[in-house]
Amino acid sequence: MQGALSIRGARKVYDAKTAKVVALDSIDLDIAAGEFCAVVGPSGCGKTTLLNAIAGFDTLSRGDITLDGQSLASANASAPPDASRIVVFQNGALFPWRTVLWNVACGPIMQRRLTAVQANQQAMELLARVGLQDSANKFPGELSGGQRRRVEIVRALINEPKVLLLDEPFRALDALTKSVMQEYLIELLTYVPKTVFFITHDLEEAIFLGDKVVVFSSRPARIRQSVTIDIPKPRRHEILTSPRFLEIKAMLSGAIHEEALRAFTVGERELA
């Protein structure tokens, strides 16, 4: 199985005019192939910076990121963005002026992996699996938030990425939709196992979804804590009140709260 991500000594410094801003301060992280790694931390601490470096939208000042042994990013250089590591963005990036079907099928067509007919067929299958086959010819603007998230995840998966990068994807949803979407994601990933790099600020979400939870400190970001979640998958929302879940939560919440408080007093800008 492919998709082993290895991050060594990742460091990112922004030269914001005169004051150097250290976004990442020596991050070492290993994500095994097929592992779901949930990253938690206060807003603005650098989680998205690391995600951008993995995805190829940004570079590191120092350090290495390798995917299955091949270099993705090293000092001031980054492999260009491609389908091996697809991002599901926080506020959604479905093209509003194209139908849902076009959105999902466009990736394989643009990469010339599939013909239009094949791509559309696969897209319809995937949409059916998340229950959205009837929305195939609608525009994203006609769908609800939860539906749009599902389409976007499907759009990512059809490209058979090695790594799935999710940047607080459920942040804009209400709590009820969020819990349904979380279960959906787990179920989807049991069919199509993938290495996942999932950013969230919600600790419960991280523990619920992740095989491993990593706590980032506030800026400059370092890894404060890393805990393996040994609750078996597939998980249902009932486990949210199980003793093991609460135990793990207790382990992590102290560190998280401390970081959140530090970020709060420093006045980190809310990345809305």
Partner: peptide
Amino acid sequence: IDEVYFRAARSLGFSDFA
């Protein structure tokens, strides 16, 4: 145009013309 659309398109393998 929100930059996020360009990023998504790049990841999905869109050429410049696309």
